[in-house]
């Protein structure tokens, strides 16, 4: 537990210094909102579902950006070897990375939601408890899938290209469920079936890295 916390704090400190992950994701999500704002330029003529779609698309791509860079700080000087050799083994290293990814994804998602709601000004869209819950669960899905695949492809040649292609199909279910749940919440529909689906998917992909972490980096 102490190892997880130490590693988590370390990544946050690096973020504060380099601003190469969370900040980048956030900037990307903002740009995306801006581009859609210009492209559609519709003061109130848009549907709630369209805003939900734009929001999740931006979130998805921003998340991918972060996932590709998740282990980027460690690769240059093989820091992962040093971390893994520390007492406590590799499991805390994986869990710390997952926590870092989740915090960045969640921050990006909540800020992007507020900005999208403010920019598009579609009646019905607002930042409610349910929407925040959906965002946190979606961020969890992105973080767990991302940690698994990013860790797995860490030592593969050309992983910067491979990873996005590989990650996308795994994240599509998260994006669909998130989009539907957000849309339903804004329309006043029933978001709960989608939220449950999201929870189940998150759970599967949180357990999977914990079962398979031994095989993530070696060779």
């Amino acid at each position: 537990m102490q190892k997880i916390w130490t590693l988590f704090v370390k990544d946050m400190r690096l973020e504060a210094r380099q601003k190469d992950m969370g900040f980048l994701m956030l900037a990307f999500a903002m740009m995306e909102t801006l581009v859609f704002g210009f492209a559609l330029d519709s003061g109130g003529r848009m549907q709630t579902d369209e805003v939900a779609g734009i929001l999740w698309m931006g979130f998805l791509f921003a998340g991918m950006l972060g996932i590709v860079r998740l282990f980027g700080r460690e690769t240059a000087e093989d820091v992962m070897v040093g971390m893994a050799m520390a007492p406590g083994g590799r499991l805390p290293v994986v869990m710390a990375k997952m926590a870092v990814a989740w915090v960045f994804c969640a921050a990006t998602a909540s800020i992007a939601t507020s900005v999208d709601v403010a920019v598009f000004q579609v009646p019905g869209t607002r930042v409610s408890v349910i929407v925040v819950l959906v965002m946190l669960l979606g961020a969890l899905g992105l973080a767990s899938v991302g940690t698994l695949l990013s860790g797995l492809s860490l030592n593969l040649s050309g992983h910067e290209v491979l990873l996005p292609v590989l990650t996308m199909p795994f994240l599509v279910p998260v994006a669909i469920a998130g989009m539907e749940a957000t849309g339903a919440a804004w329309r006043g529909g029933r978001p709960w079936p989608w939220i449950h689906a999201l929870m189940a998917y998150d759970l599967i992909f949180m357990v999977l890295p914990l079962l398979l972490y031994e095989f993530l980096w070696e060779v």
């Binding site: 695949l149 797995l152 492809s153 590989l166 795994f170 992909f205 999977l208 398979l212 095989f215």
Partner: peptide, 12 residues
């Protein structure tokens, strides 16, 4: 090793 982990994830 990589393919095995990936196959298990994809099998979901």
């Amino acid at each position: 090793r990589v393919a095995s982990v990936l196959a298990l994830a994809a099998y979901v």
